[in-house]
Amino acid sequence: MVEAGMESTGTNTASEQPGAAPDLDLVTVPTRQGLEAVDIIRRAASKAGGVGPVLHDGSGDTLGFLVPSGTADAWDLPGSACTQTNGRGMRFGDAAASPTAGATGWLLPPEAVGPVTDPDVLRAALGEAARLIEAADNCR
């Protein structure tokens, strides 16, 4: 269930039924790129809105950004994937019930951040993160 401290942005389509899981999509990216993107979004938060809840998988390979429902319909950023959750297991208080496989946990829990990450902000941050990583790797 969505915790009481969560504010609605009007962008997700959570059901009005008490205890219902919200319909959200999940953008998954490699951990290194995701961590860079989190930093980029946080630095620019005053201009573009903040980062929403972020999950990490138990193996440490990927991060998952919660985004508004419908994002998966148009997501086409190479190196990432966007999955429709249709509310399956997306209970903010229970990351273990998330739609990602294996053990998961919150990198940024819902109670500590904004409702969801804006997909346009995320797309820009992931692009910038990829360029920073490429530049850093080429300096070695």
Rank of each mutant, 00 (worst) to 15 (best):
S15W: 09
G52D: 10
D94M: 14
D61W: 01
T11W: 12
L126W: 04
R32D: 13
A96R: 14
T83C: 09
A124N: 06
S69I: 06
R43C: 01
D118H: 06
T100A: 15
A81I: 11
A20L: 06
G64F: 13
Q33C: 04
T100D: 14
L122F: 10
T13E: 14
W75M: 07
A96F: 09
E7Y: 05
G5D: 09
I41A: 11
P30W: 01
A124S: 14
Q17H: 07
N138A: 15
P109A: 11
T104G: 05
L63M: 14
G89A: 12
G50L: 04
G89H: 11
D118Y: 08
S15R: 04
F65P: 11
S59A: 15
T28Q: 08
D39S: 09
P18C: 06
P119M: 05
T31I: 06
G5C: 09
G105A: 12
A124G: 05
T13L: 13
F65E: 08
G93W: 12
M1P: 11
G89W: 10
A74H: 08
V67M: 10
T85S: 15
A72L: 04
W106M: 03
L122T: 04
S59D: 15
S80Y: 01
L63R: 10
F92H: 07
E36N: 02
A96W: 05
G114V: 13
G50C: 02
E111S: 11
E7L: 07
E16H: 09
L132P: 00
T71Q: 07
E111F: 03
T71S: 15
T9Q: 08
M1K: 02
I133H: 03
R32P: 08
V121R: 12
P78W: 08
S8N: 03
V29P: 01
A135N: 08
T100C: 15
A103Y: 05
